[in-house]
Design a protein around this nucleic acid. Structure first.
Length: 484
RNA sequence: GCCGCGUUCGUCUAGGGGUCUAGGACGCCGCCCUUUCACGGCGGUAACACGGGUUCAAAUCCCGUACGCGGUACCA
């Protein structure tokens, strides 16, 4: 099985693109096949310089390794124009394509002239080409003269009406289109570069792609591609069109639309926001595909084992950020504190100066069950430095008149505590409270607030163990003074 | 407009003629655990788009309608 992910470098890798890449990658890995990255850079006007690098980086971050791609050979379409030109010559010679000289303005004029209520948007096709300037209506001499005179031209696919193009989509079953409805698609633009349709078919054949797995937006173009394969005399690869990822309200997941709803669209944004790549992939895999059982949490390897095209759905799917967050938490809980801390060392040091690896692992152990993102570790600042402010609402709720006295008594008891363990810290706290005729809660909450600045967090005694005697006593004293 | 593809809880989905008083997951609500917050556990809420047909029997098959999405570019 040879599959490819073929993005256009017109922008950073999109979340939908990542899912397409994932499905292709899973198929390749499951079958022992080959995963190819092909850069479809035939649109010079929309070309974005750093997009290709972003695509490569994003795939690497996600863990989708590429077997063949720009790093291993000629996998950018801009480097392969000879191949397309040769293919075009074959098509022209066989009469399956023709040359056309109409300018964009002339085509627009035709559309306006021929538009009716029943057909508001006439195509350049079998029914209109006889009214246009092309090698089907002009003499061979005139065509040659125009070309040698430097007149711009395009090459179009000649699609004849009256038959059906039928193909079997691995996701949707049999799909058919009337050739009457297929336009004479441009194959080569006037700038000399091929369009997607031509380059895609030529490359898929040349690279011996066995399965074309792509988004549903390509379904309507597939008859053109089938016609091209047919014109070349090539076998059509297996086709599979994936359901589109929609915004949370069902609309298009465009950048603008998604951002308005708080949904990042670029993979790099998920990376920056601290998502675990495996969690993102896990969520994306389940968006439009369902494994046989009821298991939902999968490693990449687990996905590889379970994946198959026949369980891919057919309808558009709405992106749900809450569920993605849940997947992130599940994957985080499956990771070791060492792994979580390891990934945050850079950020921790940037925020708090010198933080040791061991210290970070202890912090991660403490917060493991409480984190939604690995990057949350950095946000729990009281783990790495003493609080300088104390949450106002928490103070109001928990810091009572007797708090300074109780906290001070506890601090004095702690200073003399023989061993610094959660058990001894707890019994010490309970006896201190009892001596003062107060419930344990009367002391637990103020102590937590004093040492962390907030009213929630890990088990108090585990936190104090983590902080150590000196820091604990210091923080208690500081808070008593500050909250006076 | 035309062409194509869709339509099961709010969302992701299971199910493919009887096992469906429709199962799971996210979210939401409640309870338990925890004198915190999470995690976890338990329970609850909530769906077969509509109308015809086929059949002893339809969420499942067929037709139509509605709605949604995609396409209709010298963009991919």
């Amino acid at each position: 099985m040879r599959v490819r992910f073929a993005p256009s470098p017109t922008g950073y890798l999109h979340i939908g693109g990542l899912r397409t890449a994932l499905y292709n990658w899973l198929l390749a890995r499951k079958s022992g096949g080959v995963f190819i990255l092909r850069i479809e850079d035939t649109d010079r006007s929309r070309f974005v310089g750093d997009a290709e690098q972003d695509i490569v980086d994003s795939l690497q971050w996600a863990g989708l390794d590429v077997d063949e791609g720009p790093q291993t050979g000629s996998y950018r379409q801009s480097e392969r124009t000879d191949l397309y030109d040769a293919a075009l010559t074959r098509l022209l010679d066989a009469g399956r394509a023709y040359v056309a000289f109409d300018t964009p303005a002339e085509i627009e004029e035709m559309r306006v002239r021929l538009a009716t209520d029943a057909n508001p948007n006439p195509r350049y096709d079998w029914s209109t080409r006889s009214h246009m300037k092309n090698s089907l209506t002009l003499s061979a001499n005139e065509v040659a003269a125009r070309i040698s005179g430097g007149e711009p031209y395009v090459i179009r696919l000649r699609v004849e009406p009256g038959s059906d193009v039928v193909f079997t989509d691995l996701v949707r079953g049999e799909v058919s289109f009337r050739t009457d409805e297929v336009d004479d698609q441009i194959l080569r633009k006037s700038d000399g570069l091929p369009t997607y349709h031509l380059a895609n078919v030529v490359d898929d054949h040349d690279m011996q792609i066995s399965h074309v797995v792509r988004g549903e937006e390509w379904l309507s173009s597939t008859p053109k591609h089938v016609l091209l394969y047919d014109a070349f005399g090539w076998d059509v690869p297996h086709m599979a069109h994936l359901p589109l990822i929609l915004s949370p309200t069902g609309g298009k997941l465009s950048k603008r639309n998604a951002e308005r709803q708080g949904i990042p669209v670029f993979v790099k944004e998920y990376r920056a926001a601290g998502y675990e790549p495996e969690a993102l992939l896990n969520y994306l895999a389940l968006l439009g595909w369902h494994p046989p059982g009821e298991q939902e949490i999968f490693s990449l390897q687990g996905l590889t084992d379970a994946f198959s095209l026949d369980r891919v759905g057919q309808s558009g799917v709405q992106f749900d950020k809450d569920k993605l967050a849940w997947f992130n938490g599940q994957h985080l809980r499956g990771m070791t504190p060492e792994a979580i801390a390891g990934g945050q060392m850079e950020a921790l040091r940037a925020a708090y100066g010198d933080v040791s690896q061991d210290r970070a692992v202890e912090a991660a152990t403490l917060m493991h069950e409480r984190m939604a993102f690995a990057s949350d570790l950095v946000a729990f600042d009281y783990l790495f430095r003493a609080p300088e402010t104390w949450d106002e609402a928490a103070v109001k709720k928990r810091w009572k008149d007797d708090s300074p006295g109780l906290v001070t008594a506890y601090r004095e008891a702690l200073a003399a505590l023989p061993d610094w363990t959660a058990e001894s810290l707890e019994s010490c706290l309970r006896s201190t409270a009892e001596q003062h005729g107060a419930g344990a809660g009367r002391l637990i909450h103020p102590v937590r607030l004093a040492v962390s600045g907030v009213s929630h967090g890990p088990g108090l005694f585990d936190l104090l163990v983590y902080l150590g005697r000196d820091a604990t006593c210091e923080r208690l004293q500081t808070a008593v003074r500050a909250l006076a």
